[in-house]
């Protein structure tokens, strides 16, 4: 099977006033079509595939159409002066030029319905500030899905949401992955969520991959960093005072 996405020795550096920051230092992984892979990290900036050599126009055509990204907070990533509907229609018509307005509107409303917005016609005409955080995040997902991407990158898509809403959004994503066969990269710092939601997990620290494993095996992780992260979270019913703390070993970052 060929992979949908291949990342080989990715390095991302940012030059800053105080020196060069190496955000990603040689990360490699592959993502097949059906199963989900996960990049769990505290900080991650990346732009992968063979995109490195692709010209800007080609990359732009790829973005939104084949690769879509959900950002952390819909409040800041939706355009505040455009209705939600118009933003979705715009995305669609950018990538599928032959779609006329009526059809685009119809598909946008259908997509809003697909992300379980109860009254899609009303939401279509609302501005981002008129909807709740969960609703905004769903609208964002709808916008990202409208062009039918094969790969979705979700950067902490639920961390700005309440726990119950969080689960609803996750179940929408889960459904889309299993029904459409879309690949999903789910970036999160919440190990509890990752272990219950994803198939495979890459644990990152200081720009490097600590380990790669199946999500179901996360509890029995080998790397002390992963163990430490799992261990230091308070759990309901566990009486551990004080909580074990993670001592960061310098060799992890080496």
């Amino acid at each position: 099977m060929t992979s949908l996405l291949e990342v080989d020795d990715l390095r991302v550096t940012f030059p800053t006033r105080t020196g060069v920051i190496e955000a990603v230092r040689g990360v490699s992984f592959a993502l097949g079509a059906p199963p989900q892979a996960v990049v769990s990290a505290k900080k991650l900036a990346f732009d992968g595939i063979d995109l490195l050599t692709a010209p800007a126009t080609e990359r732009r055509a790829l973005r939104g159409k084949r690769i879509a990204m959900i950002l952390q907070d819909a409040k800041y990533s939706l355009d505040p002066v455009m209705t939600i509907g118009r933003q979705i229609v715009e995305t669609l018509r950018t990538h599928e030029k032959n779609v006329n307005k009526a059809e685009a509107t119809e598909r946008a409303i259908a997509m809003l319905e697909a992300v379980q917005i109860r009254d899609p016609k009303r939401v279509f005409d609302l501005h981002p500030h008129e909807v709740s955080g969960g609703m905004g995040q769903r609208a964002m997902i709808a916008m990202m899905l409208i062009a039918g991407p094969e790969l979705m990158i979700a950067d902490e898509p639920t961390s700005a949401l309440d726990v119950t809403v969080q689960l609803e959004v996750l179940s929408i994503l889960d459904k889309l992955v299993s029904e459409r066969g879309m690949g999903l990269i789910f970036i999160s710092h919440d190990l509890r969520l990752v272990s219950s939601f994803c198939d495979r997990v890459i644990v990152m620290y200081a720009g490097k991959v600590m380990e790669q494993l199946k999500a179901s095996e996360l509890v029995s992780a080998q790397h002390p960093y992963t163990q430490g992260l799992l261990d230091c979270m308070p759990k309901i019913g566990a009486d551990r005072h004080p909580l074990p703390v993670l001592s960061r070993k310098p060799e992890w970052a080496a």
Binding site: G228, L229, P234, L243, R248
Partner: peptide, 8 residues
């Protein structure tokens, strides 16, 4: 998470 444990 790890810093949270320290602060708690």
């Amino acid at each position: 998470a790890s810093v949270q444990a320290e602060v708690l």
